[in-house]
Amino acid sequence: NKFNKELQWATWEIFNLPNLNEEQVKAFIDSLRDDPSQSANLLAEAKKLNDAQA
Score class of each variant (00 low, 15 high):
Ile29Arg: 02
Asp51Thr: 09
Leu17Met: 13
Ala40Thr: 12
Ala27Asp: 06
Phe15Lys: 15
Ser37Met: 07
Ser37Asp: 06
Ser37Gln: 08
Lys26Asn: 13
Asn21Lys: 10
Glu45Phe: 07
Ile29Thr: 04
Val25Asp: 00
Trp9Thr: 10
Ala27Asn: 12
Asn4His: 13
Asn1Leu: 02
Lys26Ser: 09
Pro18Ala: 08
Asn1Arg: 03
Leu42Lys: 05
Leu49Tyr: 04
Phe15Leu: 15
Ser37Glu: 06
Lys5His: 06
Asp30Leu: 10
Glu23Lys: 12
Glu6Leu: 13
Ile14Asp: 03
Phe28Ser: 00
Phe15Arg: 14
Lys26Tyr: 08
Asp34Gln: 11
Lys48Leu: 08
Asn4Leu: 14
Ile29Gly: 02
Ser39Arg: 03
Pro36Arg: 02
Leu43Tyr: 04
Ser39Met: 10
Ala54Glu: 10
Asn41Glu: 11
Asp34Ile: 10
Gln24Val: 03
Asp35Ser: 10
Leu43Ala: 04
Ala10Ser: 02
Ile29Lys: 01
Glu6Lys: 04
Phe28His: 01
Lys26Leu: 12
Glu23Met: 11
Ser31Thr: 08
Ala40His: 10
Ser39Asn: 05
Ala46Gln: 01
Lys48Phe: 07
Lys5Gln: 14
Lys2Asn: 15
Leu20His: 00
Ala10Tyr: 14
Trp9Ala: 14
Glu22Gly: 10
Leu7Ala: 07
Arg33Asp: 13
Ala40Val: 13
Ser39Asp: 02
Ile14Glu: 03
Asp30Ile: 09
Lys2Thr: 05
Asp34Phe: 09
Thr11Arg: 05
Ser39Trp: 15
Lys2Trp: 14
Leu17Glu: 00
Trp9Ile: 13
Lys5Ile: 04
Leu42Tyr: 07
Thr11Gln: 12
Asn4Glu: 15
Leu49Ala: 05
Leu42Glu: 01
Ile29Ser: 03
Asp35Pro: 00
Asn41His: 10
Ala27Tyr: 14
Glu23Asp: 15
Trp12Ser: 12
Pro36Glu: 03
Ala46Ile: 01
Ser37Trp: 06
Leu7Gly: 03
Trp9Lys: 13
Asn21Thr: 12
Asn41Gln: 12
Phe28Gly: 00
Pro36Leu: 05
Lys26His: 11
Val25Arg: 08
Asp30Glu: 11
Lys2Glu: 15
Glu13Met: 06
Ala10Trp: 08
Glu6Pro: 02
Lys48Thr: 09
Lys47Ser: 05
Asn16Met: 09
Ala54Lys: 11
Leu17His: 02
Glu6Tyr: 10
Glu22Leu: 13
Glu13Ile: 12
Asn21Ala: 06
Gln8Pro: 02
Pro18Val: 06
Ser31Asp: 08
Ala40Leu: 13
Gln38Asn: 11
Glu13Trp: 10
Asp34Ala: 13
Phe28Asn: 00
Gln53Trp: 06
Gln8Met: 12
Glu22Phe: 12
Leu17Tyr: 03
Ser31Tyr: 11
Arg33Lys: 12
Gln53Pro: 04
Asn19Ile: 01
Asn16Asp: 05
Asn19Gln: 04
Ala10Phe: 15
Gln8Val: 09
Lys47Leu: 06
Glu6Ile: 10
Ala40Asp: 08
Asn21Pro: 02
Asn1Ala: 03
Gln53Thr: 06
Ala44Leu: 11
Asp35Met: 08
Pro18Thr: 12
Glu23Leu: 09
Asp51Ala: 13
Asp35Ile: 05
Leu42Val: 15
Ala44Tyr: 12
Asp34Val: 11
Lys47Thr: 06
Lys47Phe: 06
Pro18Tyr: 08
Ala54Met: 09
Leu42Ser: 02
Glu45Asp: 07
Leu43Glu: 01
Phe28Arg: 00
Ala46Phe: 02
Lys47Glu: 04
Leu49Phe: 05
Ile14Thr: 02
Glu22Tyr: 13
Phe15Ser: 15
Ser31Gln: 14
Trp12Phe: 13
Leu43Phe: 04
Glu6Met: 08
Leu43Ile: 09
Lys2Gln: 14
Glu6His: 06
Ala54Asn: 09
Leu7Thr: 04
Leu49Val: 08
Lys47Asp: 01
Asn41Met: 11
Asn50Leu: 01
Gln38Ala: 15
Asp51Met: 08
Asp35His: 10
Ala54Thr: 11
Trp9Asp: 15
Asp30Val: 07
Val25Ile: 09
Ile14Asn: 01
Ile29Pro: 00
Gln24Lys: 01
Glu22Asn: 11
Asn21Arg: 13
Leu7Ser: 04
Trp12Glu: 15
Phe28Glu: 00
Ser31His: 11
Phe3Arg: 15
Thr11Asp: 05
Ala10His: 07
Glu22Met: 14
Asp51Arg: 09
Leu7Arg: 01
Pro36Ser: 03
Asp30Met: 09
Ser37Leu: 05
Lys2Met: 13
Leu17Trp: 02
Lys2Ile: 15
Asp51His: 08
Glu6Ala: 05
Ala10Arg: 02
Ala10Glu: 03
Lys48Glu: 08
Asp30Ala: 10
Gln24Tyr: 02
Glu45Leu: 06
Leu20Pro: 00
Ile14Leu: 07
Gln8Tyr: 13
Asn41Val: 08
Leu42Met: 10
Ile29Asp: 01
Glu13Lys: 07
Pro36Thr: 05
Ala52Glu: 12
Asp35Ala: 07
Asn19Gly: 05
Arg33Glu: 13
Glu13Asn: 03
Gln53Met: 10
Ala44Glu: 09
Leu7Pro: 02
Asn16Leu: 08
Pro18Met: 09
Glu6Arg: 03
Trp12Ala: 14
Leu32Gln: 01
Asp34Pro: 02
Arg33Trp: 15
Asn41Pro: 15
Lys2Ala: 15
Asn41Trp: 09
Lys26Asp: 07
Ser39Ile: 10
Asn4Thr: 05
Lys48Pro: 00
Glu23Asn: 12
